[in-house]
Design a protein around this nucleic acid. Sequence first.
DNA 1: ATAATGAATGATTTCTTGATTATTCATTAT
DNA 2: ATAATGAATAATCAAGAAATCATTCATTAT
Lengths: 203, 203
Amino acid sequence: MALSENFSPSETTSDTILAAAMRRFEQFGYSKTTMAEIAADCDMSAANIYRYFENKLEIGVRLARGCLAQECAALTKVVDGATSAAARVEEFLLVSLRFTYQRWAEQPRISELVEAIARERTDVVQEHLRAKNELVTRLLLDGNSNGEFSVEDPQRSAEAIMVAGTLFDVPLFMHLHTCEKFESMAKNVAGLILRGLVSRPIV
Amino acid sequence: MALSENFSPSETTSDTILAAAMRRFEQFGYSKTTMAEIAADCDMSAANIYRYFENKLEIGVRLARGCLAQECAALTKVVDGATSAAARVEEFLLVSLRFTYQRWAEQPRISELVEAIARERTDVVQEHLRAKNELVTRLLLDGNSNGEFSVEDPQRSAEAIMVAGTLFDVPLFMHLHTCEKFESMAKNVAGLILRGLVSRPIV
DNA sequence: ATAATGAATGATTTCTTGATTATTCATTAT
DNA sequence: ATAATGAATAATCAAGAAATCATTCATTAT
């Protein structure tokens, strides 16, 4: 056996399983795909999958985490962007929305997977929200240091921004409006958050 | 027959039915109470209820509307209150939250009813949101005229405020945090909305 | 040792069927 | 006319049986 092989557990095999599961989940949904089918796609027995994953839910969790990580990666780019902090706040809301909307519209089965996981494994969603919260905090700190913002408690404001963006994060709501309408709403919320209601002289 | 009686359909009878239905729905839930039971409570046959209501769902709709109207009444008092417009914006979010939370915590059956109605009769919820939106618009206009606010498009800002308060309006979310935590969040969102992120000199 | 399997088991889902229930209507009171 | 009813019907619900499925484990390959 070559040194490069034979990690434990085999990375290649578990990736094969994940890929097969993803294809099935995408096409038929989480609950309608069986371990036997995933196994058959990988030319192995169902029992063998358990050498690489604790159970079916754990496969779902891994794939859902991957999905949410994609969103976080895109949001990280937004936060670290070169535009004004204000523009990045708006963009943050818009990108969050687009991820939710597109998953809902184009990959309804995956959206269903994420929701199913969210129900049974609250920690997965909570971790995702925590990660997003951290990104917003970073964005606010950056806005503070370049003089655009003067946020007293970035942690607290970040949480408030996340709360204010709830409508854009929940697949369940996506049927209520068109994507365009949601984008318009997100822009308005961003404007509200940035400028505030209280009157003030022009700087 | 006296002139004072005999409207069509009899107002008293339909109110009796609504009251009986409310008692049943509160105790056993919408789906678990039968038309026969409601009728028995009113000393009439099930068939007779259909002289006063189109069907069971319509009874649910009427009761749900009543529930939501209570919230609107409370919010109207807030909007027409004597405090600063800023304080009223915060109070508006807090009162919305408390209605959602308390219904969820103390009248879970009624909360279930409202959710069931919301699923099958989107118009009921939409009308409620429209009514709240109008109240917020009124509040913003008032803030504008007393010099506290300088909102360019109150209609649009009102919608944005409603969107930002989504987390506080949906019973489904109530299990996520304690009421105290939600109140703290609502206050922070209000602060964010009022002051905004963008830095500015002290007026 | 590591990888993989088939057979066994308990849990879950699906299916079937009988019972309840919402709703209608022809008929009876007032 | 208006109010109310009991019987009829079609839709929905629920309990239990049958089948499928996730998971385990003793055993076999490499």
